[in-house]
Every structure is written in C-alpha cells, then in structure tokens.
Amino acid sequence: MNEPSLKEPDVSEKSVIQIDDLSLIFETNDGPVHALSDIDLSIAEGEFVSLIGPSGCGKTTLLRVIADLERATAGSITVNGVSPEQARLNRAYGYVFQAAALYPWRTIDRNIALPLEIMGLSKEEQNSRIAKNLDLVNLTGFEKKFPWQLSGGMQQRASIARALAVEPDLLLMDEPFGALDEIVRDHLNEQLLKLWEKTNKTVVFVTHSIPEAVFLSTKIVVMSPRPGRVHDVIDCNLPRERTLDVRETPQFLEIAHRVREGLRAGHSYDD
C-alpha cells in the first residue's frame, strides 16, 4: 500500500490558466441559458486537473472556452498569460475530442501529420515527430493503416498522438475515453498517466467518471449544473507514480467519497 505523500506535488506555481468571474450565456430560442456562471479557477503548470460533473454542468463548455471554441460573455480568462484566441493562434494547446475525429481519407501517420502540415513544418521534422508520438502511444507499425481499420481505443490513441505532435505544453481533453469500454479505458488511463509524467505537460481533463478523475488528477474540479458553476475544488495528492492498484487504497476511496459528496450536494436541489 502506498504511504500518503506529505510533500507537495512537484509543480511550479506558475499559473497556465487563470479564470476570474467567468460567465457564458447562450442565447437560444427558449431564452438565455446560463452555461457557465461566475467561474474562478487557476491551473498551475504541470498540474493534471479534472473537470467532473453531471451532464449539462458546463464542463465541456468550460474546456471549449479555454480552447477558444466558445467565447465567454463576462469575466476574464488568460491562457499562458494571453487571451484564449491568442493562445489558439499560438498553437499553445492540443485538444483531444470525445471521438477520435481522424480523417478517414488519411492514413494514421498522415492524420498525425495534419497539424504539422498546417504549421508548415519541414518533411523531416514531420516524420520525426510522427515516429516519436506513435511510439509514445504504442502505435508503431500502424502508421499506414486507415483509421477505420483500427479499433476505437487505437483510434483514440492516434488522436492523442496527433494532439501531442503539436508539442503543446497544455493538453485539453474532452472525455477522450468516454466511448470506450472499462478495460480499454483503464489501460489508456494508465498510459496517459505515464505520458503525463514523461512529458510534464499541464492537462485539463473533462470526465464524468469519479474513479477516472481521482486516478489521474492532481486537482479535481467538481461542477454542478443550472447554472454551470464550480462546486468544489479537491486536491488529489496521491503519489505521482500510481498504478491501477492505487484505487484500492483508503486515501483514494476517501477522495472519491469527497468527489461523490460534492456531486450529490451540487445536485440536491433537483429533487
């Protein structure tokens, strides 16, 4: 069993994402919808932050605001000290979607080359990054396959390799393993954790699985719906080196319990 680590996780305190008093209201035909309301959040370099909450709590919307795929209607947000739009134009982040979103007319290696072509990198640079990142997600040997010839888990790994190939310091992941079965998901969670340790990136990870959030994160942001807001921020100071066994420890269960309590409290006014 792992001893609870007393030292702080070794992350510097430089803030990568700073969100203050952020709100987002969608104007719909049925009137305004408060997707996000008064969000305050700070994410430091090297952290692995999970956004967790029931459907409709705005966790994906928050991630999309960070990625400049949605615009906040009030409040302020900076990514790497600049506006999300500037950060996007700087290609400051890699984004992994709920589905792999690989282009079916491109082979796996050409799919990973896609962002590199757009960035205008040289052929040699492209090839070395493709090889490196395919190796990182254990897909070496599949570069000439088309996406539809691979399993769902392999497709999602390829899409992670594609996001990593941009070599961003920040990785935004929107329920990347949501559509996969439990066993594949466990496996990919372990791989993702190793990858995070190896590359020391900042990760923002949207999920609605409590074990997944606790297993992966250094910090868990519990969100609640209507309007979408931050209910609780839980530090998850399990040792950085974790295996799936950590899920049996009392410390893990304690954090999971707190997350569950938070989710329940955020939901309580519903019934």
Binding site: R88, R91, Q98
Partner: peptide, 29 residues
C-alpha cells in the same frame, strides 16, 4: 464536414484555405 472535424482545424489555427483543402474538399468528394 462534421463539427468536431471543423473544431479540430480551428484548434490548429488553420486558415480558410487550409480547412478547405485539407478537410472540406476531401470530405465533399
């Protein structure tokens, strides 16, 4: 072209021409 595929091009800060030639044109074939 799917929304997710278009968002992907946006996260790469792809230009209109790049999105056209690398996503929307092949997808329209």
């Amino acid at each position: 072209a799917g929304n997710m595929e278009k968002d992907l091009m946006r996260t790469y800060a792809a230009s209109y021409g790049q999105t056209l030639s690398k996503l929307r044109l092949p997808n329209a074939m």
